Computed example of a mutant assay.
Amino acid sequence: MKNRDQNKMNDELAHEYVHFNSIGNLVNCKGTIQKTKENIKPLYDTNKIMGYQLLLIENTIDVEEKLIEYKFEEVTKSKFPFVYAFVQPVENNPIDFDQLMEELDYIRVDL
Results as ranks from 00 to 15, higher is better:
Asp96Cys: 02
Leu26Thr: 14
Leu55Phe: 12
Glu12His: 03
Leu56Thr: 03
Gly31Arg: 15
Val109Arg: 11
Glu69Thr: 14
Phe82Ile: 00
Phe86Asp: 07
Leu56His: 01
Phe86Gly: 00
Ala14Gln: 11
Lys48Arg: 10
Leu67Ile: 12
Lys48Leu: 05
Arg4Met: 01
Met50Phe: 15
Lys37Asp: 11
Phe86Gln: 09
Gln99His: 13
Val109Phe: 10
Gln6Asp: 10
Val109Lys: 06
Lys79Phe: 08
Val87Ala: 02
Asn21Leu: 08
Leu56Asp: 03
Leu55Cys: 09
Asp11Thr: 01
Gly24Ile: 08
Asp45Val: 00
Phe86Glu: 12
Asn59Gln: 14
Val63Pro: 06
Glu16Arg: 02
Asn10Gln: 08
Pro42Asp: 03
Thr76Phe: 04
Gly51Gln: 04
Asn59Leu: 08
Lys48His: 11
Arg108Ile: 07
Asp96Ala: 03
Leu43Ala: 01
Leu67Met: 12
Lys30Ala: 11
Pro94Arg: 01
Met9Ser: 01
Glu64Ile: 14
Asp62Asn: 13
Tyr84Ile: 02
His19Lys: 03
Phe97Trp: 07
Phe20Pro: 04
Asn10His: 09
Leu43Val: 05
Val90Ile: 09
Gln34Tyr: 13
Asn47Asp: 06
Phe97Pro: 08
Ile68Met: 09
Phe86Leu: 10
Asn39His: 11
Val87Thr: 03
Gln53Val: 07
Asn59Ala: 10
Glu69Met: 07
Gln34Ile: 14
Ile61Pro: 01
Val75Phe: 13
Pro89Val: 00
Asp11Trp: 04
Glu73Phe: 12
Pro89His: 00
Leu104Thr: 01
Met1Asn: 06
Val18Lys: 03
Gln34Cys: 07
Asp105Lys: 00
Val83Arg: 04
Leu111Asn: 08
Ile57Val: 13
Leu104Met: 09
Gln88Met: 03
Ile68His: 09
Ile95Thr: 04
Leu104Arg: 01
Gln34Met: 11
Thr60His: 05
His19Glu: 02
Arg108Asn: 11
Lys66Pro: 03
Asp5Ile: 06
Phe86Lys: 10
Asn25His: 13
Lys79Gln: 13
Lys8Glu: 05
Lys30His: 08
Lys41Ala: 10
Gln99Glu: 15
Val75Gly: 08
Asn25Lys: 12
Tyr44Glu: 05
Glu38Asp: 15
Tyr70Ala: 06
Ile40Val: 14
Gln53Lys: 14
Leu67Lys: 15
Lys77Gly: 14
Asp110Glu: 11
Ile68Leu: 14
Ala85Asn: 02
Phe80Leu: 05
Ser22Met: 05
Pro42Glu: 05
Arg108Leu: 09
Glu65Trp: 09
Lys79Pro: 06
Asn92Arg: 07
Gln34Asn: 11
Asn28Glu: 14
Glu102Thr: 03
Asn93Asp: 13
Val75Glu: 13
Val83His: 07
His15Lys: 15
Gly31Leu: 15
Lys2Asp: 06
Lys41Gln: 13
Asn25Thr: 11
Tyr44Arg: 05
Leu111Glu: 11
Gly31Cys: 10
Asn93Val: 04
Gly24Trp: 12
Ile33Ala: 00
Pro42Phe: 05
Lys77Glu: 15
Leu104Asp: 05
Pro81Thr: 09
Ile95Met: 00
Glu65Asp: 13
Lys71Ser: 15
